Amino acid sequence: MATLPTRSPIRKRLDRAGIALSALCATHCVLALVLAGAFGGLLLSPVFHEAGLALAVALGIVGLGIGVARHRRFGVLLPAAFGLCLMALALMADHGPVEAGLTIVGVVLLAFAHWSNLRRAR
């Protein structure tokens, strides 16, 4: 059986991409709140939210999954799962501060999970 390398460049890239996507998502939420009057239709489009969540789930499953398979520390999955749940819950909320708050807390938890995954692989 092949073992996964400790410092897999692909896994590191996926975790870093997950952190970057989380930052981009949080920035999008803040901009949507601040610029809702000017660009509300574009920034509040459900396509952004659904595509972002789908990408976050994919990066989470693959990136975190590879890391956990290697380092066997399943604790990184708890903040990731909770963060993804909050992000999914935000899709059901009306646009505004509640949706942005749920999403921002969710992406922070998910970014923390990816960061922890990077640290665990050292």
Rank of each mutant, 00 (worst) to 15 (best):
L35H: 13
F82M: 14
A88K: 04
R72F: 02
A36L: 03
C29E: 06
I19T: 06
G83T: 02
V34M: 15
L91D: 07
T103W: 03
E99S: 09
R72P: 03
A90T: 00
V105D: 01
L53K: 04
L21W: 10
L35W: 13
H114W: 03
V34H: 09
S116K: 12
F74R: 10
G40M: 02
H71M: 05
A58R: 07
L21D: 08
D15E: 10
H71T: 00
G75N: 06
L44M: 07
P79W: 01
C85P: 01
A69F: 04
L77G: 08
A51R: 08
G67C: 09
R70C: 02
A100Q: 04
T27N: 06
I66Q: 07
L110A: 09
V62L: 13
H114S: 06
L53F: 14
E99F: 13
L31E: 07
R11Y: 04
V76A: 12
R119Y: 10
S45K: 03
V62M: 05
D15N: 14
A111I: 13
A80C: 13
F74H: 10
G106K: 05
P46W: 11
A36P: 08
A90Y: 03
P79N: 01
G67N: 08
L44F: 04
I61T: 12
K12T: 13
V57I: 15
V105H: 01
W115L: 15
V68N: 09
R70M: 07
A36M: 10
P5W: 11
H71D: 12
S45W: 01
L84E: 02
A54Q: 15
R122Y: 11
R119V: 07
L89R: 02
L53M: 06
S45A: 12
S116D: 10
G96I: 09
M87F: 01
L42V: 15
M87K: 00
S8G: 02
A54P: 08
H95Q: 13
G96K: 00
L109M: 14
M92L: 14
V107H: 01
A90G: 00
M1N: 00
G101T: 14
S22G: 05
H114M: 08
D94G: 09
G83I: 08
L43G: 04
A81K: 04
L78I: 05
G67P: 02
A121R: 15
V76T: 11
D94A: 13
R70E: 06
V108C: 09
V76L: 00
G65N: 07
F74S: 06
L44S: 03
V62A: 06
R120A: 13
A20N: 04
S8D: 10
L91T: 14
F82Y: 05
G106V: 03
A111P: 06
G40D: 10
R120L: 11
I61H: 05
G101P: 08
L86N: 01
G106P: 06
L24M: 15
P97S: 15
N117I: 15
P9T: 14
V62Q: 08
V57Q: 03
C29D: 00
A20D: 05
A81Y: 01
G67M: 12
G96D: 09
H114Y: 13
R73L: 11
S45T: 05
